[in-house]
Each structure stands twice: as C-alpha cells, then as structure tokens.
C-alpha cells in the first residue's frame, strides 16, 4: 500500500463513518457536527484528486456557510424533537433495506465498468483555466446561477420572515386543527384566543394558550 492509498483510505473512512453517525445519532446537534466532519473528509478527497479550488470552495461554502446554517436551524427549532424521543420514523427499517440494497447493487455493478482512464497530469494553471471557462464557455449557466442565488436569497427572506402582528391569519378551521395538534385542550373558542394560539410566540418559545 502506497502513501496516497493510505491517506485515501483514512479520509474515506473519516467521511463514511462520520456520515453514518450523522444519519444515525439521536442528538441532532451532534449530527450537525458529524456532518461537518464528513464534509471535511470530502474536501480532503477533493484535494487528493488535485482539485484544489474545489476543495477550498467546499470548505468555504459547506463547512463555513451551510453547516453554520444547519446548526442555526437546529438551535432555532430546539426542544421540539426531544433527543430522548424516537428520531426514526415508522419506515426506518424499510429505509435501511432500500439503501442497503442500493449500495449492494452499486457495488456489484461498479467493477464491471471499464472506464478509459487517461494517465495525464493536471495542468498547472488549472484554476486560471477554470475561471476563464466560467466566464467564457460556461457564461450562460454562470449567469443563470447568479439569478438562482438571488431568487434563493429573496425567497428565503420572504418565507422565513415574521408575519406582522397587525394582520394575523383569520381564525378558522385551521386554527382549530392547530389547537388539536398541541393536545393541550385549551378552550380557545373566541376569535381572540384563537389568534393568540396562531400567533403564539410567547416567552421561551412556549405556546401561549389562554384559559379562563
């Protein structure tokens, strides 16, 4: 076993094991941290493939931005799904069978392909050529990507912003359903109390259900 092969196996094991822990650990915050380790491993694999720019972009975009975003989301929605409670849904066994079968099929099929690999070296000015092709050959998808990012930015702000309290959604069957989902049995019959349930952002993230 050569030195690159040793490091490849090391990084691959780090990536796969932390990825596996990411999807199986009951604590969601730990899962986010395992995801970060797995993304680090993928960046190391990119570096081993001599794609230096992509490895750095992976670190900045995934580890720097997306992982922080996911950790923020975990903390903002904390307390809803208890770490002690069941983290897997009713189809977890079936999911394990499906993903295991897919992995089995892929591993059986993979060796039969015989790709015409070339043994050429990566050009030294690769990053320069990458930038030139982004604004040359691939300029249209590049611009479409910028529009996509703008749309995602505006859409995320619009979706996640807080609705103003002056225009609460009218109490109706929906709010009745919500009251049932809480399972608190509060007698929220008058419209005002229903609004309090709908808009209930009380202190400490608790739902405020007023009872007379």
């Amino acid at each position: 076993m050569t030195v690159p092969q040793f490091f490849f196996i090391l990084f691959a094991l780090i990536t796969l094991l932390s990825g596996l822990r990411c999807v199986t650990t009951p604590n969601l915050f730990h899962a986010a941290l395992y995801l970060v380790i797995s993304l680090f491993g993928v960046a190391a694999l990119f570096a081993m493939l001599e794609a230096g720019f992509l490895a750095l972009a992976q670190l900045i975009v995934y580890v720097g931005a997306i992982a922080i975003l996911i950790i923020f989301a975990v903390m903002l929605t904390r307390g809803m799904v208890q770490p002690s409670g069941a983290q897997l849904n009713s189809q977890a066994g079936l999911a394990a069978v499906v993903s295991g079968a897919l992995l089995f099929i892929l591993l059986r099929v993979l060796p039969s392909f015989n790709y015409p690999t070339v043994d050429a070296a990566v050009p030294a000015d690769l990053t320069t050529r990458l930038g030139q092709s982004l604004v040359g050959e691939f300029v249209l998808p590049f611009e479409v990507t910028s529009v996509l990012l703008l749309a995602a930015l505006v859409g995320a702000i619009y979706i996640a912003r807080e609705r103003s309290k002056k225009t609460p959604s009218p109490p109706g069957p929906l709010s009745q359903n919500r009251k049932d989902d809480f399972g608190r049995g509060g007698a929220a019959d008058s419209p005002l109390q229903s609004i309090a349930v709908v808009d209930g952002r009380g202190t400490g993230g608790e739902v405020v259900v007023k009872e007379d």
């Binding site: 990825g19 596996l20 999807v23 499906v98 993903s99 295991g100 897919l102």
Partner: peptide
Amino acid sequence: AALFCTGIYGVLARR
C-alpha cells in the same frame, strides 16, 4: 456510492 446510500437512509428514516 456508500456516502450516497448513507444520505438516502438519512432522508428516508429521519423524522
């Protein structure tokens, strides 16, 4: 392939 199947399991099994 292994990482992809791990991700599929996470998508299908997580609540």
